[in-house]
């Protein structure tokens, strides 16, 4: 098993954290993992992105030019990465503020309105967990129990009371998927 993932959006949407949680979950599931952020000037105001690779074998390049799965949270990210998804791969996007929808015919495209759901339910900070819930329903690369194990390991103890809320967000996110 090997899954090469790009997660991209605006700075502040939780792009890097989502990647970190995904990577940590992979670690909990005995996978080889790599997490490579774009740490340059594009983080300031433009798009933030992170490449996450989960694999059963040793990972070669942490930097890629094509991906199995793209999780795209804004228009610039769709414009930049839609054409870098391998044929047969998956594009999962948040519909908020999107004016030009992805339209490739050789990939699977899913819309997940996590931003809208988070705003309506007053859980804005849970947006990335809603999205992750949807992603893991579409591409079950790690088990939810390992996501929670990862959260427990990465969050300081004073934040552990937030884990059930995250679990709920993962479940709610899985219900938001619309296949295009």
């Amino acid at each position: 098993m090997k899954e090469e993932i790009i997660i991209a959006g605006f700075g502040g949407q939780g792009v890097l954290s989502m990647g970190k949680i995904l990577a940590y979950s992979g670690l909990m599931q005995d996978k080889e993992v790599s997490w490579m952020p774009a740490y340059g000037p594009e983080q300031r105001g433009g798009t933030a992105n992170v490449t996450v690779i989960l694999s059963d074998e040793r990972i070669s390049s942490p930097v890629l030019n094509t991906y199995d799965t793209a999780i795209l949270l804004n228009q610039p990210s769709i414009d930049k990465f839609e054409n870098k998804i391998k044929p047969g791969g998956s594009l999962i996007f948040d519909g908020n503020g999107i004016t030009r929808f992805p339209d490739r015919k050789d990939i699977h495209i899913y819309r997940v309105d996590a931003t809208e759901y988070a705003a309506v339910n007053n859980i804005a900070k849970m947006m990335n967990m809603l999205m992750l819930g949807a992603v893991l329903k579409i591409r079950p690369i790690v088990e939810i129990k390992n996501v929670l194990k990862g959260l427990k390991k990465t969050l300081p103890e004073r934040h552990h009371h937030l884990i059930p809320m995250n679990e709920k967000a993962l479940q709610a996110g899985a219900e938001l998927i619309v296949k295009l």
Partner: peptide
């Protein structure tokens, strides 16, 4: 280099 410094791995 910047990649090895910034990337996370096991």
């Amino acid at each position: 280099d910047g990649i090895i410094g910034q990337m996370m791995e096991k």
